[in-house]
Write a protein that binds this DNA or RNA. Structure first.
Ligand SMILES: NC(=O)c1ccc[n+]([C@@H]2O[C@H](COP(=O)([O-])OP(=O)(O)OC[C@H]3O[C@@H](n4cnc5c(N)ncnc54)[C@H](O)[C@@H]3O)[C@@H](O)[C@H]2O)c1
Ligand SMILES: NC(=O)c1ccc[n+]([C@@H]2O[C@H](COP(=O)([O-])OP(=O)(O)OC[C@H]3O[C@@H](n4cnc5c(N)ncnc54)[C@H](O)[C@@H]3O)[C@@H](O)[C@H]2O)c1
Lengths: 209, 209
DNA sequence: CATACATTGTTAAATAATTAACAAAGATTT
DNA sequence: AAATCTTTGTTAATTATTTAACAATGTATG
């Protein structure tokens, strides 16, 4: 297998979904699943499931299907989730707090190691046992905790500054929740998540003519 | 113009971005912008900008560009944002609270009208002046407030039940934050937002081989 | 052990989306 | 007012993604 050539972004997202179904199936004692089962559970076509998996290798048995646990492990490996990742959240506001307390990240191998803010009233406090550090100490802490992933949850006006500091400190992948376009050097993986735009997608389709 | 034929989903998302840039430009007194300006600011190609707009009509002047305010208004109309939308959030947990307090939705014409939860300790309380109602009263309130949009912020196990109730009450568009596939009838617009999957997209690219 | 059945992996075909190219239209310069 | 420069809208070419088809491979059955 493996990441030699360009694979559709959508495939990566679907692998996440598949893996969630597979771990559930395994928990329920369903040891073998077919592309049809996976497809049904995740809302895609069976051909799509097989195509997605085929990018990375052969994981099934013809006439039988896939072993749930085994395929789960393969997918987690493909996604880089066969290890723990330390994550920094920048911005201890509404969104930063919600994300900091989210148990779901842990279940997938993500550790929110620290939170950064520039508000003196917040620095030194904790959010469910995670320390809030000053924005100034970001570089130092990112190195201490070996953090490679960062989440930007600050106002749009500060997003680029935060991204620059994260990258300089050694962060390699960033999720930006601020509704603004930021730029990073070539080799940094950047993902923008625009929640208002999601609502607007709905209204686009609901508004007639 | 208009929505006669299938337009790429990605186009809709980009229109949101363009509109954010345009309102900023207009505020700064930049009355005319080119596809190149828009492209630069939003991280796409100028050809893409023109193509996206061309789906809906002719909004510019050759040799000149687009009037910022005018194009902004057109795009907002296309997105169905030339009016107010009432929104219900189901789940007054970490995420529901963060979303309820988010000012950015208001700026785009979204009103969080009410929040629903089934925890007796939360029902009757308020989150920044928005009432938390019982899950049982959902149908009633959705009708009272003429709510057409719903946000699901409950545990995965409850997501399908919540979706069913929203749809039955008259909601036409749903954003689902629970990491699970839910199904709704044909004419309902459903959008799944999987935040853990966004992190996994990063790790996919960061993990070598 | 031959036949029927199930399901994968792969190749081909069909669709969709992006990028590039350029004529058309307007502004600016000389 | 002719020539030059800009920038759009549109068409064509390219690239990417999804869907469909099916041969290959395995299991189950009589
Ligand atoms: N709250 C939501 O549900 C929501 C939804 C969609 C998008 N967003 C976006 O996410 C971002 C955060 O939203 P929020 O609601 O949490 O905002 P918020 O105002 O509640 O919190 C922002 C936090 O960032 C801190 N901050 C500001 N500048 C900083 C800097 N340079 N370094 C470090 N910290 C800094 C502030 O002190 C504050 O604690 C915004 O860009 C917002 O548009 C939020
Ligand atoms: N917190 C985050 O940052 C985050 C990030 C990604 C995804 N999510 C997803 O969003 C959802 C909510 O996450 P959270 O962290 O806010 O969880 P949470 O446990 O903090 O809150 C869930 C809320 O839903 C309520 N609830 C449960 N069943 C209900 C029902 N049937 N009707 C009405 N209310 C009900 C609970 O009482 C609780 O208040 C989950 O599916 C989670 O996986 C959350």
């Amino acid at each position: 297998m493996f990441k030699k050539f360009k694979i559709p972004d959508a495939t990566i997202g679907r692998l996440s979904m598949y893996s969630r179904y597979l771990i559930e199936a395994d928990k329920k004692g369903i040891t073998t699943v077919s592309s049809q089962h996976i497809a049904k559970a995740t809302g895609v076509t069976p051909a799509q499931v097989r195509k997605d998996l085929a990018y990375f290798g052969e994981f099934g048995t013809r006439g039988v299907g896939y072993n749930s646990r085994e395929l789960y492990n393969y997918i987690m490996k493909i996604l880089g989730l066969n290890k723990q990742w330390s994550v920094a959240i920048v911005g201890a506001g509404n969104l930063g707090r919600a994300l900091s307390q989210y148990k779901g990240f842990n279940q997938r191998g993500f550790n929110i190691s620290c939170i950064f803010d520039n508000d003196p009233k917040k620095i030194g406090k904790k959010i469910s046992n995670i320390n809030i550090y000053s924005f100034d100490s970001l570089a130092e802490k990112v190195k201490d905790f070996n953090i490679k992933l960062g989440i930007i949850a600050v106002p749009a006006s500060a997003a680029q500054e935060v991204a620059d500091k994260l990258v300089k400190a050694g962060v390699r992948g960033i999720i930006n929740f601020a509704p603004v376009n930021i730029t990073v050097e070539e080799n940094i993986i950047l993902r923008r998540v625009d929640l208002a735009a999601q609502l607007e997608y709905l209204t686009y389709y609901l508004e007639e003519i």
